[in-house]
Design a protein around this nucleic acid. Structure first.
Lengths: 223, 223
DNA sequence: TCAACTATTGACTTATGGTCAATACGGACG
DNA sequence: CGTCCGTATTGACCATAAGTCAATAGTTGA
């Protein structure tokens, strides 16, 4: 196999060449941001195992060694990208105008959720399908998103204070999140209904489920 | 590195040793079954990447080459094991006594589901978390389980014939499956309630959700 | 005893994640 | 202008694990 000459020798060679490609130096933050962006793109449209570190290094026009200087393992790079994707989604959903009526709050949140997902479908799938099975850090990110979304949708609802810590209620909230995820993915795949119809369905289900999960005593409180 | 002597030479050596381990020959089906069992066990308690083909070959006391004779890739081995796990789960849920009242049918199915899961928790997690992110065959298996379970729980219900093909209904069914999965996983992790309480919650939610998903005209039909 | 069939082997290749000592670039300072 | 120093950058190298294949050993029947 052909082996590149060592650095010093090569420099001489390159200096003899007109218009040689100068080595590009970026500062820490710029380089890190560039690599993260490339990683997000790569991991969003290929499976984890189908993305090689060499690919990303090549796209960034840097050596693999430098990439490892910024992200000590492939997993770290992946998780860092995933965290950004997760943060974007949570950001989109939580930055909905406050002081709406409870049901409109939910509507607005779900609108933001569906909107964000349609605009970043691949990233969403790579987030929720959890590219690496059973990696604790990945699981932590995904769980974090679920918890934050659950909080967002439930905390301002009238029934929430009555039920904090109630096992049935907590389980139901988690379940509703599962409902939303699966219904959304199904919707992405099959396109069976309009986005507005889906949003209304999810809102109705949210209130319907919560009513069903309440201990009977509290039910009159609701509607 | 020490290199093993070629077969013929080694045979002579072995023959000189008292009680040498004879090479074990199994027929095709036995060997395949053995490897599948080992694979299921391995992939159930370690992540896909943490299971090496050499490990499994070592456990089976065979060479790696032979393993590749039975399963042409690691993925094939993994998927074959996954299919078995999936079939077991579906089998458990569908083999519930027929001719029960609709709500008891659902109850019995969910009982079987939760029972099977508690007895095969690791396999269930490795199934649902989808060990390999975004592998089409894996996705197909998981989707297949969901579809079959959904059919099982919905096909005998009184509202089903009214709604076949209805987009809202189909989406809701998928969502309910998501609800069940997430609530179940949450229950496995936190152990916040008894299995019976969870089962009752899931049944109530199933009927509550379906009612909410029905177009208003049909609702009186139900309760 | 031999031939044919098939289960089995293990050395080899290849791909890729990860390491590290050496190097090039740019600025500060005399 | 030179030269020292900090840091971004390199590329050869290593280690591991997936996957290949020609050769071998055990079995069965004539």
């Amino acid at each position: 196999m052909l082996r590149m000459p060592p650095g010093r020798v090569r420099r001489v060679i390159r200096q003899a060449v007109r218009g040689r490609p100068r080595r590009v130096r970026l500062d820490n933050d710029q380089r890190r941001a560039q690599l993260l962006a490339l990683a997000r793109a790569a991991f969003s449209d290929r499976a984890y195992d189908d993305v090689s570190i060499d690919d990303i290094a090549r796209e960034a026009k840097i050596s693999k060694g430098l990439l490892y200087h910024y992200f000590p393992t492939k997993r770290d790079l992946y998780v860092a990208g995933l965290r950004e994707i997760a943060a974007d989604l949570v950001q989109a959903v939580t930055s909905v105008p406050p002081n709406l009526a409870p049901i409109d709050q939910a509507r607005a949140g779900l609108d933001a959720y569906l909107d964000h997902i349609t605009r970043h479908a691949r990233a969403y799938v790579s987030l929720m399908r959890g590219g690496i099975g059973s990696d604790p850090e990945v699981a932590e990110v995904v769980e974090g998103v679920r918890t934050q979304l659950a909080d967002t949708f439930v905390k301002d609802q009238p029934f929430a204070p009555l039920l904090a810590g109630n096992a049935r209620f907590e389980t139901t909230v988690r379940g509703w999140i599962g409902f939303v995820e699966h219904a959304t993915i199904d919707w992405c795949v099959h396109q069976r209904m309009s986005r507005d119809d889906l949003r209304e369905l999810l809102v109705e289900i949210l209130f319907g489920i919560m009513k069903a999960a309440l201990p009977p005593v509290f039910r009159p409180t609701l509607s």
